[in-house]
Design a protein around this nucleic acid. Structure first.
Length: 106
DNA sequence: AAGGTGACTCAGG
DNA sequence: GCCTGAGCCACCT
């Protein structure tokens, strides 16, 4: 199996700084830039398996919605680390919370 | 080989 | 703002 890809995704997610978020597409792009494969859906697939080991709640859809399978839980966690949410609290304010991938930890 | 499915995304109505 | 349809990548029947 594609352990390499899975590890790359989990690593990328683990590097998202607290208080910020990335989209599935962003993660897929960072991983894909190196491995030349995968896509947003693959990122989701990986998180579905071993996601509990990383801050999965910092990965949201392109329009700032949190993953539907655990939306409530995700909103709690995001709010807890001060991620800017829209007034209704149902979506993340992408303009202010989106991580650009530059402050990578080594 | 062909078709279905999904923690996705983008453009249209 | 919600629903569709098409595009997408990998995996399963």
């Amino acid at each position: 199996m594609d352990e390499v890809y899975q590890e790359a995704v989990l690593d990328a997610v683990a590097q998202i700084p607290p208080g910020t978020v990335s989209t599935y597409g962003d993660v897929a792009a960072r991983v894909g830039a190196v491995l030349e494969r995968g896509g947003p859906r693959q990122v989701g697939a990986v998180l579905a398996l071993g996601g509990d080991a990383v801050p999965w709640w910092r990965v949201v859809t392109a329009d700032g919605r949190v993953p539907r399978h655990a939306a409530v839980r995700a909103r709690e966690l995001l709010r807890a680390e001060n991620v800017p949410l829209r007034p209704d609290g149902r979506r993340v304010r992408m303009a202010g919370a989106r991580w650009d991938g530059r402050t990578r930890r080594t």
